[in-house]
Amino acid sequence: MFVPILIAALAFSQSPTDVQKGKQLFEGLCSRCHGFDGTGGEGPNLNRPMLTRAQDDESLRAIIRDGIPDRGMPRVRRTTDNEQRQLIAYVRSLGRAAPATAAGDRQKGSAVYQRSGCSSCHIIDGQGGVVGPDLSTIGVQRGPGYLRQALLDPAAALPRGVQVIPSRNLDEFLPLRVVTREGRQVSGARVNEDTFTIQLRDANGQLLSFRKADLREINKEFGKSLMPAYKDRLQAAEVDDLVAYLSSLGGAK
């Protein structure tokens, strides 16, 4: 019983050099989404003792090798066995470091969520509105830093990879303002688009579909978000609590 475990441990023995090289690779390939030092961003933070989808090194290797394309994680590039070993060494070292302590209280954060009206636009566990992204599993999709920024300054980075459609990494929930040929002005969030047509959802949740040729203007409001900034609406402690609550969503139950 002990012998195979020992062999496995030896096979994945990780030298400090591996960790160093893995860090260098990580900063090039992974940090854009998982953050420097794996603290998370558009992708989840990796500085935790247990990674839900990569509990052993073989599953971690498979994710590094192939990505998780249906969850928005690409295989950034092909890696050699050696490079995979170095990346594993570094990612595991993140989990051994002191875990990032969530400053907030998730129970209190839940209350902040309720009283701030978030559920008029967002769904958690089946409850809420559809104007913004479903947050039921947001804690395993995004790092705490990204969630904090999304609360304080949502226009700084529109979400990507939340919906299956539109694909191609287009900004999701992009605010649109279109003017029809008759002069009618319509605003909402982009639902989908192709070269000839565009679909949006207005503030009432109403779907509107246009052929672009029938529109006088199509204004894609990059740098804006339909979500209000909560920078001045919440106390610092409330933000911490809300981040702690959102970070807990979708984790192992």
Binding site: V76, R78, T79, T80, R168, K220, F222
Partner: peptide
Amino acid sequence: YYKGEADYKPGTAFTGGGGRRMDGD
């Protein structure tokens, strides 16, 4: 564009790196 190791073994990837496309809007 990323540079990486290249290790020739017949019938396996011998690419020495790869790339992340800057797609989106």
